[in-house]
Computed example of a mutant assay.
Amino acid sequence: MSAKILVTGATGNFGKLTIDFLLKKGVDAANISALVRDEAKASELAAKGISLKIGDYDNYDSLLAAFQGIDKLLLVSGTDLVNRSKQQLNAVRAAKEAGVKHIIYTSFERKNETETSPIVFLAQSHIDTDNAIKASGINYTIFRNNLYLDVLPMFLGEQVLESGIYFPAGEGQAAYVSRNDLAEAAANVLISDANESKEYSMNNIENYSFQDIAETLSKITNKEIAYISPASEEYAEVLKNAGVPGEYIGMFVGFAEAIKQGEFQTDSSDLEKLLGRKPASLNDFLKQVYSK
């Protein structure tokens, strides 16, 4: 009897990729369900034979109904940062009440779990969810995901090839990983028989600084790409003058400071083992995005 898998956030990038990997790896579409808020946005999934469950993190009863008969739940962290803790705790409670046997959660890599973390706005809900999952008594796999390589273009800005990198991350390094690799690793765990509770370090096998990024981009594009790390205040001011919304400025400044402080620099990685191959490198990713 094959395990019944449910993926939340299934119309988002991570959820969609994971479902595609499950199908590629031979899981029958009949054994995969997708939690969606809006059926109209999930027609692509329905066309693949995925069963759609309508549910909303803010509506406990909808989650409880959606999780009935599910063995493995991939809880993809939500994007509503303000309400995320409450929403995800709803999901964990519903999973327990519905009898889900295993929760897989996309958490994040960190060192500082206190209020002093520059990304406390993002961190707290992950920490709350990790703790709730561990306290639930359900078997779990918690992925401590590093920063996505896929967010780098956002940090670098659209004019990076013309005006270089302007980002206040100092000499801080991070073990950036590709979303694709993380989704494949999640699919591998979902199809494995592993049922012991575990946390995995989902980091790349190398750490990169923004200076490394500038040098790699220079090689790929045959252009001299400089890296300037301004003071956070100056950076925030420049973004403000460029009309960037305040919440984005706060987020960029927070991430830059966290990178600067070494929050995402790490020498431990379970990713290669879970993939059975080397993860995509910074060079692989930048080549894909920036080489003409």
Rank of each mutant, 00 (worst) to 15 (best):
T8H: 09
E115R: 12
Y166Q: 10
V238I: 13
N207T: 12
P245H: 10
N204E: 02
F167G: 10
S197H: 10
T266I: 10
E171N: 15
A256V: 07
L190H: 03
K25W: 01
Q211L: 11
K219R: 14
T129V: 05
D130E: 15
Y235K: 05
A185I: 14
I19F: 00
D71N: 14
K223W: 05
N90T: 10
S51A: 11
G78F: 03
Q265H: 08
I32F: 02
S232P: 03
L81T: 13
E196H: 07
P245K: 14
D28L: 12
Q265L: 06
G172N: 04
L190F: 01
G262K: 08
L64G: 00
S125I: 06
P245N: 14
S218I: 02
N145T: 14
G170W: 09
V160W: 03
A3T: 09
A194L: 08
I228Y: 07
A123F: 02
G26Y: 08
R110C: 03
S2I: 07
I213Q: 04
A236E: 15
T11D: 01
Y166C: 09
V253T: 15
S2K: 13
L35C: 08
Y176D: 05
A30H: 10
F67E: 00
A194H: 06
S281Q: 11
K101T: 15
A185V: 13
A258E: 02
L217P: 02
A187H: 00
D212S: 13
Y176W: 15
L217K: 08
D284W: 07
Q173N: 08
R37L: 11
P153A: 09
G172K: 08
R179E: 13
S136K: 10
E257K: 14
N283T: 15
V253I: 14
D181E: 08
V92T: 10
L73H: 03
A123N: 11
P245E: 15
L81A: 12
R110A: 12
N180L: 12
L64W: 00
G172A: 11
L35Y: 00
V151R: 13
G55V: 01
G49Y: 03
E39N: 07
R110L: 05
Y227S: 10
I249N: 03
G69E: 13
S268M: 08
Y235L: 11
K25I: 02
E196D: 14
N13E: 13
H126F: 06
Y148R: 12
L74G: 01
D193W: 01
I142C: 08
D38C: 05
V92S: 02
F285M: 09
E162G: 09
Q261C: 03
E196V: 15
I103C: 01
F252W: 06
L149Q: 14
N83G: 09
P168F: 05
Q261L: 15
A256Q: 04
